[in-house]
């Protein structure tokens, strides 16, 4: 059995990245809904994959199952050949950017970006340095002390991206990160997002229903419909 954690996971550059095979997720109900109906997906290290499809096709569920928020009924999720399907969410080392940001309302901007670093027990100086580095990257330098409620929608999503990148995840999953924004802002932020992800050579999967957005950010696009990849 594999009991992989962030610390003892292989870190070599020769890794194979993300491998999803035969993944199935069924929601209970009458009748039960098979949201993900047997998906195989591989993402090489450093690659950014766009997952495109109409709403309700199961793409968000697939993402949730990869990150561990939803338990799959069958299939495996592996990283660099190590099965992580049974690894608890907080030990997988995968980051997730939510559609609506999900920033913690009771923490400041810096408190949000630093959350993952706090969980990892990073020393204070290193933490503060990393926070200002990331705020700089997402174009919010000097915003650390602000309250979340003072930010605009676009700024919030920038904070959400910075927060996910801070603990150096092995894989970043983005669930329609720009869909809550108005269209002009979306185009600009999409270009920025692609640049940021490449700068950190992130391996990433981004869910979207906008082909133009996928083109701006991703290296490769896969389409999904009715729970399966086309």
């Amino acid at each position: 059995m594999n009991d992989s954690t962030l610390s003892d996971a292989p870190t070599g550059t020769a890794g194979t990245g993300l491998e999803v095979s035969g993944l199935r997720v069924t929601y209970p109900g009458k009748p039960p809904v098979e949201a993900v109906a047997g998906v195989d997906l591989g993402v090489a290290p450093g690659q950014i994959v766009g997952l495109l499809g109409p709403s309700g096709c199961g793409k968000s569920t697939l993402l949730s199952a990869i990150v561990g928020v939803v338990e799959p009924d069958a299939g495996t999720v592996a990283w660099d050949g190590v099965d992580v399907t049974r690894t608890p969410i907080h030990q997988r080392g995968f980051g997730l950017v939510f559609q609506d940001g999900q920033l913690f309302p009771h923490r400041t901007v810096a408190g949000n970006v630093g959350f993952g670093l706090d969980m990892a027990g990073v020393a204070r100086e290193e933490r503060d340095e990393r926070i200002s580095e990331l705020l700089d990257v997402v174009g919010l330098a000097g915003y650390g002390a602000r309250e979340i409620t003072e930010l605009s929608g676009g700024q919030r999503q920038r904070v959400a991206v910075a927060r996910s990148l801070a603990p150096r995840p092995r894989l970043l999953l983005l669930d329609e990160p720009l869909s809550a924004l108005d269209s002009e802002l979306r185009g600009r932020l999409a270009a920025d997002l692609g640049e940021i992800l490449r700068r950190f050579s992130m391996t990433a999967v981004m869910v979207t229903h906008d082909p133009r957005e996928a083109e701006l950010v991703c290296d490769r696009v896969v389409r999904m419909r009715d729970g399966v990849l086309l």
Binding site: L6, V67, G68, V69, P88, I89, H90, Q91, F94, G95, L96, F98, D100, Q102, F104, P105, H106, F115, G116, M119, A120, R163, S164, P167
Partner: peptide, 27 residues
């Protein structure tokens, strides 16, 4: 309470107990 907020904390490396203490309890 939005369960996604807890999920956000978990994804950032918080154990169940820490996610409860840091996110659920303040809310």
């Amino acid at each position: 309470l939005d369960p996604s907020t807890v999920a956000a904390a978990r994804v950032l490396g918080a154990s169940r107990w820490r996610a409860f203490r840091e996110v659920t309890l303040p809310a």
